[in-house]
Design a protein around this nucleic acid. Structure first.
Lengths: 217, 217
DNA sequence: GTCTATAGAACGATAGAC
DNA sequence: GTCTATCGTTCTATAGAC
């Protein structure tokens, strides 16, 4: 727990693993490539983390914990500031998206990468990882689902849950792929502008959530 | 090129690889597990496909070719049947989504799996695979982008391209994850109903594409 | 076209000295 | 807490018999 003046072994392993996981995926990244990049010994990984699977979870937990904590805080703040008033859809969407998107434009070196990793984890095939994520996202999911349900009162359950799913898809895809919008737009889209990405995503998702029901029960 | 009364070696390798790629990912699937499932020899993979990378591309090409061909045919049919009339947004969305979604409810054994694989390939980190896909999707992308541009005439370029990106996100996520909607809705959503998935996705995306511009240039 | 056998390298993980 | 050395496994790929 002691602070070191230079980056310690544990942190440099996390940093190196994070970058390589983004570039090569979890299965495509060997512990040997991690220790080479971090300039530490192979045995240090097992001493500090125990196994590759535990290292993966540690890399994710380090970034997800502050993001999901801020998401909950911002939703609570929205409820408080509104008193008995109704939540506004765009406000809730910003509270959900911004903590993750901000990392992309953040100051920390390498933080640009982790955003892509966070977007990709939902489509990872590993069952162990899915269980880990289910646990990490439970509070955020439950609180935000309640909030959206309060706002979209007239939407049938069927439509509501499908649209929550589509919303997650648009968000994950946006976090995941930071090149495609620039390329396919010929440079019109600017993924480096946190404000632009956030407002565009909010507008699209809000439009999708508010669309007329397809007539389900 | 000869037809065999039973499934031949090449096809059984493709089938086995396809299923394992879905379950374990590309890097997480070894050729040894493929040949074990296909009940063929390890050397047969290299004889028929040359390398693991080529096998991956062959697995994808087998499914993508008919899907993307049908997408182009359906868009052309829409243009023809409309004469000089305007394309309808929902019609174009159905033409884009349905050829892929239909595989999920299709008759072929294993076709249920490939849908998830198709949804995941866009977030694969391999550069070689991304180049392969860019080539396979070029025609579809160009034709459908033009069609959407004709329909959404009043949308600024900035908003337009971002929304195309978000649309792909919703679609890929839907193809990718065939369990989450059922779980998070408590069984309300039915991913086995091809009609339900298609119409829900079309309604959400159409709503997002039609949302008011955020005021970009 | 299918097989056996194996090359040659990389993998995750651990034991034990310091 | 960090190191060297290494175990046992698994990997892709190929050579050569049939």
């Amino acid at each position: 727990m002691s602070e070191s003046s230079t980056t310690d072994t544990k942190t440099s392993i996390l940093d190196a693993a994070e970058m390589l996981f983004v570039e090569k995926g979890f299965d495509g990244t060997s512990l040997r490539s991690v220790v080479a990049k971090a300039d530490v010994n192979i045995a240090a990984v097992h001493y500090h983390f125990g196994s590759k699977e535990s290292l993966i979870q540690a890399v994710l937990a380090r970034r997800l914990e502050p993001i999901n904590r801020e998401r909950l805080e911002r939703l609570a703040a929205l409820r408080e500031s509104n008193g008995k008033g109704e939540l506004q859809l765009e406000d809730v969407l910003r509270a959900l998206f911004e903590p993750a998107l901000r990392l992309a434009g953040g100051g920390e070196p390498g933080s640009n990468n982790i955003v892509r990793l966070i977007g990709r984890i939902f489509s990872e095939p590993s069952h162990a990882l899915q269980l880990f994520l289910k646990d990490r996202f439970r509070d955020v999911f439950e609180n935000y689902t309640s909030a959206f349900r309060e706002i979209l009162t007239e939407l049938p359950d069927l439509d509501f849950y499908w649209r929550i799913h589509f919303m997650l898809g648009a968000m994950c895809h946006t976090l995941c792929d930071r090149e495609r919008p620039v390329i396919l737009s010929g440079g019109v889209c600017d993924v480096e502008s946190q404000h632009e990405v956030l407002e565009q995503l909010v507008a699209f998702v809000a439009g999708g959530l508010r669309a007329q029901s397809t007539g389900g029960k």
